Computed example of a mutant assay.
Amino acid sequence: MTSGFQTGDAATLRIVVLAGGVGGSRFSIGVRESLRRRPGAGASGFTIVVNTGDDLWLSGVRLQPDVDSIVYALAGVNDTARGWGREGDSERVNAELQAWGSGWPWFTLGDLDLGTHLARTGWLRDGLSPTQVIERMSRRWPLGATLLPMTDAEVDTQVALGDGTSMHFQEWWTRHRATLEPVRFDNPGIDRAAPAAGVLEAIAEADVVLIAPSNPVVSIGPILAVPGIREALRATDASVVGVSPIIGGRVVRGMADVCLRAIGVDTSAAAVAAHYGARSDAGLLDVWLIAEEDAASADEIERRGIRTVVTPLWMKDAAASAAIVDAALAAVEG
């Protein structure tokens, strides 16, 4: 861990966030809001490395659920009630696709959302990389951040089940609501993948790396599995600060507890901290933020060599999310 950065012009503060899912979207809004509140507010040094393990091909188009969730959230056009897709979207095209027997009847694609997928697919077929596609997507709205996919390779998440079969993560998550007990999560080809252009450089040049309170297994896990990213986090001079996705021994959203159980990790703030590990002991974390409800586990986490900060972690709005980021930055500021 470094000695910390100096408080000052926000435009000079270089922050990298590893994120995915709704938790990553809300946390990213908090980072942007926290930066805006700082002297000389600017966000030119704010980079989000996004999980692309959730990606899939469906009805001939390429979907990137975590990328889109973060783009829509930062643009202020996301559907906050459902937690995914565009606000005020319609589903006429989705109904027509299902009438033709195309796609998955249990996987809804909104009309505006389909516009995103069609644009992305067209650009990919024109020869653009996923990194270039996301850069082009980011021109539409003032996002206040640079988004990078974890890799340009297709490494979609497959869920292996106890009966020897497997299915795409989205089928397991959306259709079966994680009721089928998994034995492991695979990203075929990820061992041959490379970090997307700019990812390793952003980590190396960062002042702070923040691990969002995203699902540790299927959102953060694939990012860390891309060859070179974990090593870059171990080598960076930046402080690495993680935010617990567990509050009071329970997951905040989704079925992360099922995912954690599959890899032998308890659903607790202390267990997830141990899963990431301390940088002083070949792990990743310098600092770990836990909720007030989990304050009793602070000493246990500290004994693992991870500085522990107890703070409110409910991301009920942008201000609350920004307060979490403020606490994370305060923990490592010099």
Rank of each mutant, 00 (worst) to 15 (best):
G76C: 04
D66N: 01
R36A: 15
T108D: 14
I70L: 12
G40Y: 11
D89F: 02
V77Y: 00
S59F: 13
G53W: 01
A81Q: 14
R36S: 15
G76D: 04
A43E: 15
V93C: 03
N94Y: 14
F107Y: 15
D55F: 04
A43F: 13
G88Y: 06
D55R: 06
L97R: 14
S44E: 15
G45I: 00
G42C: 03
G40P: 05
N51V: 11
A95V: 08
I48W: 13
W100C: 13
G103S: 05
T47G: 10
Q64A: 14
V49Q: 01
W100E: 12
G110Y: 06
T80A: 12
S90W: 03
D89K: 03
A81K: 14
A73F: 05
V61K: 02
G42Q: 03
I70V: 02
I48S: 13
D79S: 03
L114D: 06
V77N: 03
T52H: 07
S34K: 02
V93F: 08
A43R: 13
S69E: 04
G110Q: 12
G53P: 06
V67A: 10
T52Q: 04
P105W: 10
A73L: 04
R38Y: 01
R37H: 05
G85T: 00
P39N: 00
L114M: 12
L112N: 15
E87F: 11
Q98W: 10
F107A: 05
L56H: 11
Q64T: 11
P39Q: 03
P39K: 02
R62Y: 07
G60I: 10
E33L: 14
P39F: 07
L58V: 06
R92Y: 12
A41L: 04
S34Y: 05
Q64M: 08
L35E: 04
E33I: 01
G115Y: 10
G85P: 01
E87Q: 11
L97Q: 05
P39D: 09
G53D: 09
L56T: 11
W104N: 15
V71E: 09
G88V: 02
W84R: 03
L97V: 10
L109I: 15
R32Q: 07
E87N: 10
F46V: 02
Q98Y: 02
R36P: 00
G40C: 03
E87D: 13
L97I: 00
I70E: 12
W106M: 14
E96W: 14
F46R: 06
W104F: 14
L112F: 14
A75Y: 03
L112W: 11
A41F: 05
E91M: 06
G110V: 06
R38D: 00
Y72V: 03
